[in-house]
Design a protein around this nucleic acid. Sequence first.
DNA 1: TCTGGGGTCCTAGGACCC
DNA 2: TCTGGGGTCCTAGGACCC
Length: 442
Amino acid sequence: VTGVRLFVMPSTDRTILHVDMDAFFVSVELLDAPELRGHPVVVGGDGPRGVVAAASYEARAFGVHSAMPAVQARRLCPHATFLAGRYERYAQVSRRVMAIFGSFTPLVEPLSLDEAFLDVSGALRVHGRGAALSGGEIGRHIRRRVLDEEGLTCSVGVATNKFVAKLASEAAKPRASAGGPVPGEGVTVVDGDEVLAFLHPLPVGALWGVGPATLARLSRLGVVTVGDLARIPRDVVAHTLGQAAGHHLHALAHGVDERPVEPDQRAKSVGHEETFATDRYTAREVQRELVRLADAVAGRLRRHGLAGRTVTVKVRFSDFRTITRSLTLPGPVDSGGALLEAARSLVADVDPSPGVRLLGLSTSNLRQGAAEQLTLLDGPRRAGPGVAAADRQETDQAVDRIRERFGAGAIGPATVAHRPRRADGLGVKTRGDQQWGPDRAE
DNA sequence: TCTGGGGTCCTAGGACCC
DNA sequence: TCTGGGGTCCTAGGACCC
């Protein structure tokens, strides 16, 4: 194209904020139950195999932290209040908080319910009305508004790129202590000329993308701090960690991160997985669980107007060994029946007898818009897995409408339904499970 | 101590095509 | 008898993040 010029803004001119809500899930729970304020509160960790999703600073003082197995958290802090977690509520508050961010800049990239990157390079002038506002001042405005409007606190990092901003928000956070939470700085600004001094003393594990496995490899090279990593030649890092990760981490260690803030990230996969309270040992049990997973995933696909071509089943055995099996269909699907059919064929040759602790079903290769109706592949109109596509679509739409009016639990696959015994014998399972088999899912 | 559920991204091998 | 190079798609596994 002639006559078009692209201007690339030099990275040193960018002002990036990372905003991170403080103990978000717990803080939302405290809004609704203020009597728990000042006490150790843990969200998640329900069920025999649960893990902690979030812990209040009072609970953290006992060593409780997120991703910790529930049993361990209960041992460390038996007097804590354990809450199951209400994700719809968190999502609702999250949308409002994100809207506050959005009033400062259109360039908001949510990373999860409780954190986002903001590129405010252009907002500095808009809000300053001539008198330029600094990144730190915008950070303080955001904290004030989130507190005033939602009653929640957050921590803000300000830097010239994403990953330094993220580390800066971490530095701004409150700290847990035996005497109660110690407030942090709230807003931490790292100017361009301070980046290396800020970065190099940090442990390498602080870098985004350095987990246990990478940490182990790096420590074999004698790398402890980010500064140590910066002194290793790029090719050596790439040889140890692979091309992509190596080059990326080498750049980060030198404070370089050119990734833009991208507001419109589209989902690449939609899935659902479940760890069972007790292991499953038979193919029939596995097949029945798949019905529920397929139904849940299909419902979410349709709610977002998506359909997926690739179906992946994940099986985790009792010894934690995990396998995945996937297949790509000729066209995208969004019905529980179609997902179930694919999932079934994928687990057909998986032996569940060692004990299955988790089953997952996920779809990827997503397309926007309605699923292709695979009428030809679906076979003749009859009950069972070959039920015609048109029937399937009608059923799905009816189910969606019922759920809209009466809630998600109002209707579901027969195989997973609770069937109370009735005096007149109706609705009572008579001989085994076969006649209620997953084939009758819809 | 015994390890959730939602995801993203990367690697590597093989099939297939031009 | 020895068998290219590049690209894309698919599958399986793994690391990592919140």
